[in-house]
Design a binder for these strands. Sequence first.
DNA 1: AATATTTTTGACCACTCGGTCAATAACGGA
DNA 2: TCCGTTATTGACCGAGTGGTCAAAAATATT
Lengths: 199, 199
Amino acid sequence: MGRPREFNYEHVVSKVTEVFWAKGFQGTSLDDITSVTGLNKGSIYSSFGNKEALFRLALRKYIGDGPFNQFRVGEISPDPVNALIQLYRKLINESQMAKLGKRGCLAFNSGMEFGNQNTKLSRFVIEEVERLESFFHELVEEAKATGALSKSLDVRKAAFRAFSAAFTIREMAKFRPERDLLAEVANSALASLGTERRV
Amino acid sequence: MGRPREFNYEHVVSKVTEVFWAKGFQGTSLDDITSVTGLNKGSIYSSFGNKEALFRLALRKYIGDGPFNQFRVGEISPDPVNALIQLYRKLINESQMAKLGKRGCLAFNSGMEFGNQNTKLSRFVIEEVERLESFFHELVEEAKATGALSKSLDVRKAAFRAFSAAFTIREMAKFRPERDLLAEVANSALASLGTERRV
DNA sequence: AATATTTTTGACCACTCGGTCAATAACGGA
DNA sequence: TCCGTTATTGACCGAGTGGTCAAAAATATT
């Protein structure tokens, strides 16, 4: 019934995610979106709503596909500390790629862009960033349970340290991408967790 | 000779700095600037040039007036480690103030905003951020010289760790302003420098 | 083949953007 | 008081912004 869609929904969201990632929310115009997706404005608005709705889909997709979800406990390795190390390595490696590294992380970028606002959209963004943080919380909790980290560790603080390191690696890579410097950030986070293991 | 200015140059730059700090470069319109300064566009353009020139003045002023310059070696305390601790404390304290804390740091904000570009302006911004980093370099070097930090410390890496902590405190405060969490960041940087002292 | 339903198209909207400019106003010096 | 110089004013510019909509096109059903 009705005329069928000519575009692939997920493919469009994926393209939109990339352009928001590269240019930010404010920096991305509807013309950017139409040219990168091949759709025109009318199609976009009837299928997705407005720029803000599209951005929400993009951010959700980015987080869902991103490395934070790929290194969940037990999915890559039964060892949570190893999962953390692998994640840091992946972030550092991606930061070495000239174009990709300079983009930072869409979630963190958005947190920076919307951080000093107080709108529905800014609250949505911050909630999504907090979902990222909870991933580190789970990792640290699991590492405590398996005995890989000390029982006396303050999980909330330790998780924040591990989370901060990921933030710093991703975002500082925009202007300081040197691998050994980013590794310092990861390694001092690991040291602060009480493990001897390094990135 | 000629009609005298009706505005105070430094006062205007100061107001402009605040609005760029609060809204970012892209997020600040010329109307924002005219309404915050009381000048109209013509005056602004004849006195300062364009939006970009105004932004350069603002960023320079921000860095010149900021805490990074206030805690130079010997100016507050002859003890460089103490200067670092004082600086962290100041950053953490400012992050507690609801509106101010959410603004982060104009220099870092700008680094984030321009990081993935390659224009004259983006290069200017990155140079300014690097000037901030060199402040930490001097601090660490001085601390080594006075014996407050170990002679075996790698200054480049140590300075980057100290610098990263400042970055993280200022920028993560936008969405995670809790004092004890930000103190964790400062304290693990201090620990990584090999000192027992804490914020 | 006609119809109901949905998608696509591209022209169009009001508004804002950064930036310009000629006219006017305010001064110091002659 | 007139003149040269500089500052202020406000209207104006083309381009771009996010968003809308009526008409046309493509399908399944009858």
